[in-house]
Design a protein around this nucleic acid. Sequence first.
DNA 1: AACTATACATAGCAGTGCTATACATAGGCC
DNA 2: GGCCTATGTATAGCACTGCTATGTATAGTT
Lengths: 202, 202
Amino acid sequence: MARTKDPAVRTLLIERAAQMLRAREPVTLRAVVAGTGVSTMAVYTYFGGMDGLWRAMRQEGFSRLAAQLATVPLSADPVRDLAALGSAYLANAVANPDLYRVMFDAGFDLEDPAAADESLHTLVRAAERAKERGRFRADVDPLTLATQSWAIGHGLASLVTTGPLPRAALGHGAPILTALYVSCGDDPSSCRRSVESGWRLA
Amino acid sequence: MARTKDPAVRTLLIERAAQMLRAREPVTLRAVVAGTGVSTMAVYTYFGGMDGLWRAMRQEGFSRLAAQLATVPLSADPVRDLAALGSAYLANAVANPDLYRVMFDAGFDLEDPAAADESLHTLVRAAERAKERGRFRADVDPLTLATQSWAIGHGLASLVTTGPLPRAALGHGAPILTALYVSCGDDPSSCRRSVESGWRLA
DNA sequence: AACTATACATAGCAGTGCTATACATAGGCC
DNA sequence: GGCCTATGTATAGCACTGCTATGTATAGTT
C-alpha cells in the first residue's frame, strides 16, 4: 500500500512534549518537532493536531499513575494498602507535577478512559477487602469510599502542584485518610498504625 | 495631565471576559473588546495585556468566593459553621465552574493575594472557636485543620468542575468533614448533627 | 489659554495551529 | 521483477493570536 506509521515517532513526540512541559518551555507545534527531525505534519498524522498531542500526554500521565499504583505491594492489611495507594497517588503527582496538572485540564477526555477507571478500581478493590476482613462496617460502599479517598488525594495533589500549598502539606493526607477510615468503622488505634505504615511506602 | 482611566471600562472588560468564559467562547483579545466599543489597546492600558486580564479574572473568582463565604451566618455552633463554610465553598464552585477552574491555573499569582488568604482565615477562625468551645482537642492546630478542610473542598470542587465526577459527588463533603472533625475530638453524633445542619445552608 | 502627559485608535509585527498541494516511498498485485 | 496506488511527508501559505510602534485627540495642570 504505502509507507506505514512508525510507532517510535509517536512516543518520541510525546516524550519530547512532556520534557518541554517539565522544562517550562512553551509546548508549541513547531517547537515540539524542532529537535526531532520530523516535520510539523507528523503531529497531524499521529495525533490529528495539537489537541490530540495534549490528549496523548494526559493519557501518558494516567499511564504513569497506573504504573505507580501498580508498584504498591498488596499486604494482609487492606487499610494499610489503601493508605499506600493514596501515598503512591501523591508521589506520582509530585514526581510529574506538570503532567498531573495537564491530566485534569480540557474536560478529562482521554484516548483510553479505561486506564483512569482502572486506577480508581484498584482503590475500590482495597476497600472491598477491608470490608471482607471486618475492618469496615457492612454498610460502607467501596466505590463511595474510593471516590472520597480520590477527592482527598486530588485536593492535596492539586493544591501542591499548582502552587498555593507547599510540598510538606502532602503529609496532611495521612490524618485525613485515618479519620475517614475510622468513620467507616475501623478501630482508631489500629487504623492509625495501618495508615502510617502504608503511608511510609512512597 | 491627561485623560484619566475610566474604572467602568475595567469592570466592563472583566465581566465580558467572564461571560465569554461561561459561554465556552474562546477568550481572545479581539473577541473580548469586540462588543464593548473600546479598542484592543484598552486591555493593555488597564491590564497590561491578556495575562493581566486573566489575573484579574482569577481575582474576580476569589472575590466571589469571599462574598459567598461572607453570606454564611455565624452561629453558636462552630462545627456547624465549619460545615456551612465548606458547603458555601462548593456552592461557589458550581455556580462559577469556569471561573473556579481559572482560579487555580497559572501558578496562583493574584493582584491581591490577601483576598485568598482572607477566605482561608475565615476557616481558621471557625476552627479556633471550635477549640475554645471544647468541641476539638487542645492539640488541634486551627490552621492545619483549615488547610485540610480546604484540600477536601478543593478536591471535590475540582473533580466536579473539571468533569470526572458528577455534581452529586459534592455530597461526599459532609461525611468526609464529619470524619475529620470527629478525629479532632468532636462527639460523633453531635458532630454529625452539626455538619448536616451547616451543610444544608448552601 | 497654552502646555503636556496620558489614553486611545490604527496598522503592522512575529508567532500560533492548521491545511492545501506536491512529492516521495513502501506495499500489493499480476 | 515492475508497475500502481495508497499513504506518509515536506513545503508554503492561510487566518488568527497577543503584542507593540506610531500618530492623534483630549483631559488636567499651571
